[in-house]
Design a protein around this nucleic acid. Structure first.
Length: 709
DNA sequence: AAAAG
């Protein structure tokens, strides 16, 4: 496909032609620079070469550049790129566009959608690794990005904006202002196919007046990082003498700036979040995409070279790759991941970047970082050289660059930015409400204009659903870690009730973080089972009723009986899409738990029948599994998130199966694969779990070695 | 959209 597609004029510019088009001359256009975001491989070099061959004044000098070209789909993205390069744009000259529905009403959801599809996240090198449930994931993965526009393709620029398109020089400005433009790369292709300069039209994504240009840069870009990195020696000679721009004052400045525009509080109906610059400028900071972090890009080029040169000649000191790397095992379920790995401190930084990705609702970025984190967490040596890192699955030179930055400066700019960003703090607080995800958190901030939890309570309480109200009511309590002893106590209560409801043969297995060995858990996850198939039918409901009757359960957040209503069979493969990635395959109750007993209870109640129970509220998940698939249930609920995701991917790609906590099916025939026998195993659920590992062809991984998060 | 790992 690559070679057959006509290259010139390819709208995505993926195939910039190498030929020189006679008569095409860019020399009249102002100094131009290429935005490297979203470029793959040699692409950026090809674009630059093409421009150069046609006489363009290519420059890396931020004091001169007037035009940026790149894969930039939206105004917002353009703003971001400029901001990231430390341009201060004083005034945005709005491009008037015809009938752009999104622009008209500025619906935040749509903006998010558009923006998200525009940037390309860290790439994971292995073929299908970004996909778990490929249906919904592949579609939102890369490539379609540059084609996404926030205006209809045909929407012309209004006449007053570009008076007489063809006759007038394309980049002429009437004013003496320092005008900067961001132009979509497609324009270049259109020029190439036309054989002459064509009007910018819709390819002019952004135009603004520069208030302040950034200090002179190092002129190094990402391509050279890659080159340096891959070449492994002789880096020092290319190293330019340069110091890292002092970031501290900059951050402070911006923090101040941010504070100054920071919201007058309590204006729930005044949507200052949407329309002005106010909050939009917070979106898509450095952490939106490490693929395009010019802030550290040229700094890092230097740093990486520096590090690489520091390590020159020490290649032999790099430890041989661990067995799982050498054998090319790329799934987290194929290796041991302990709780406190040697590179924990670095991993903490990456987790913050991932959190930022979560909060900007960038699922792909979250997955990419999760893979990276999981791989590093399984790496048994303290990382000393970036090249060690880059051989791990999911990691590449960008990851290595982060490592170098962290190693050499003790911090990572993207993390600093995230932590200094007030908006992220607010979003994070909202996200921590049970029942509120990234979308809702963002809507609270950008849509409703709320700035803290009090705002929600004060202005939004009635708009919350029941579950969110509960989440907010017990906000602090749910964030309190639960000690192991208390987890065990809760499990024991559940067991007693289950025994009372059925018989002595019930089993309660504590899964989740507890089983991975955490000293304290965020919630309690229990798998309840019974060797008799009939005994587990409707058991969740019976349990909830019973525990509620004794005041252990104060609220039921969700109760699902899907499995029972299906006759407790393994979730069918090719079911309706709505049944999702397997969340509601087993019967379960997500409840709020509280110990009903307290020392002075009797007296308190005597004095006041409505006396308050002072005990802390806890989140408890009670999952009921039929015996014949408990192994899958226990396995599916014990690992860290990435372990689980990779387990599904492994089952899919290595076995052609669909793994689910309610069992395993063949993707080909749709038939149940009975890894635990048709009636389940004789031993305890842990024994059944071992059988599942065996059946999947996996080495047993003890739960304490599934700490991929 | 959100909940689980």
């Amino acid at each position: 496909m690559e070679d057959n597609v006509p290259t010139v004029g390819s709208p995505s510019s993926d195939h910039m032609d190498l030929a020189t088009v006679p008569g095409l001359d860019f020399s009249s256009i102002p100094p131009i620079s290429v935005l490297n975001a979203h470029f793959k491989g040699e692409e950026e070099d090809r674009v630059k070469a093409t421009l150069r061959r046609h006489g363009a004044q290519l420059t890396a000098d931020v004091s001169k550049v007037k035009v940026f070209v790149g894969k930039v789909g939206t105004r917002k993205r353009a703003e971001f790129e400029l901001r990231a390069r430390k341009f201060e744009i004083d005034e945005v000259v709005e491009l008037k566009r015809v009938a752009s529905p999104i622009k008209q009403d500025g619906i935040p959801h749509k903006r998010v959608k558009v923006r998200r599809s525009v940037f390309k996240p860290i790439q994971i090198e292995d073929e299908g690794s970004t996909t778990e449930e490929e249906v919904d994931e592949v579609s939102e993965t890369e490539d379609e990005a540059p084609k996404t526009r926030d205006t209809p393709i045909s929407s012309p620029v209004l006449p007053d904006e570009q008076p007489v398109p063809i006759a007038t020089p394309i980049f002429e400005d009437t004013s003496t202002d320092d005008i900067i433009r961001v132009v979509r790369i497609d324009w270049l292709n259109e020029c190439l196919s036309a054989g002459r300069l064509v009007p910018l039209g819709e390819n002019l994504v952004y135009r603004g007046k520069v208030k302040k240009r950034p200090p002179a840069s190092l002129g190094t870009d990402y391509a050279s990082i890659k080159a340096t990195f891959t070449s492994s020696h002789k880096a020092a000679s290319q190293t330019q003498v340069a110091t890292r721009p002092s970031t501290a004052p900059h951050i402070l400045d911006r923090a101040k700036e941010d504070a100054s525009i920071a919201p007058v509080k309590r204006q729930p109906y005044h949507h200052h979040g949407n329309d002005g610059h106010g909050s939009r400028r917070f979106e898509g900071r450095t952490f939106t995409s490490s693929a395009s972090q010019p802030t550290f890009t040229h700094q890092t080029a230097h740093l990486l070279q520096q590090t690489t040169s520091e390590y020159e000649g020490e290649d032999t000191d790099i430890p041989p790759p661990p067995d799982w790397v050498a054998r090319g095992l790329k799934y987290a379920c194929q290796r041991f991941t302990p709780a406190n790995p040697p590179n924990e401190v670095f991993i903490e930084q990456l987790k913050k970047i991932r959190t930022a990705r979560t909060l900007i609702d960038d699922a792909i970025g979250v997955r990419a970082y999760s893979s990276i984190i999981a791989a590093i967490a399984a790496y048994p040596f303290k990382l000393s050289h970036p090249r060690e890192l880059a051989r791990l699955p999911g990691c590449d030179e960008k990851t290595a660059a982060l490592f170098v930055e962290w190693k050499n400066t003790g911090s990572i700019q993207a993390v600093e930015d995230y932590e200094a960003d007030e908006v992220m703090g607010v979003l994070r607080a909202f996200y921590d409400i049970w029942g509120v995800g990234a979308k809702t958190a963002r809507n609270f901030y950008y849509g409703k204009g709320w700035r803290d939890l009090d705002d929600i309570v004060e202005y939004g309480w009635n708009g919350l659903d029941r579950v969110q109200q509960i989440g907010l009511k017990y906000y602090d309590e749910f964030l309190e870690p639960i000690p192991r002893a208390e987890v065990e106590g809760i499990a024991e209560v559940v067991r007693q009730h289950a025994v009372r409801l059925r018989d002595e043969r019930v089993s309660v297995t504590i899964v989740g973080g507890y089983r991975r060995g955490k000293t304290a858990s965020g919630d309690v996850d229990l798998i309840v089972s019974h060797p008799c198939l009939a005994a587990t039918a409707h058991l969740v409901r019976d349990l909830v009723d019973s525990l509620e009757a004794e005041d252990w359960i104060t609220h039921t957040l969700t109760l699902s009986l899907h499995n029972t209503s299906r006759g407790q069979t393994t979730l069918p493969f090719r079911t309706t899409k709505a049944s999702g990635a397997g969340f509601d395959t087993l019967d379960k109750a997500l409840v709020v738990w509280q110990d009903p007993a307290w020392p002075t209870r009797a007296a308190d109640l005597a004095a006041n029948p409505k006396a308050n129970n002072p005990n802390i509220h806890r989140r408890v998940d009670i999952i009921v599994s039929p015996w014949r698939t408990v192994g899958c249930a226990v396995m599916g609920w014990s690992g860290g998130t990435t372990f689980q995701r990779d387990l599904r991917r492994y089952a899919k790609y290595a076995k052609g199966w669909k793994f689910d906590s309610s069992g395993v099916r063949s993707r080909e025939s749709g038939e149940v694969v009975e890894l635990e026998g048709s009636e389940g195993v004789d031993g305890p659920p842990e024994e059944a779990e071992r059988r599942v590992f065996e059946g999947l062809g996996l080495e047993y991984v003890p739960p304490e070695m599934r700490c991929t998060n």
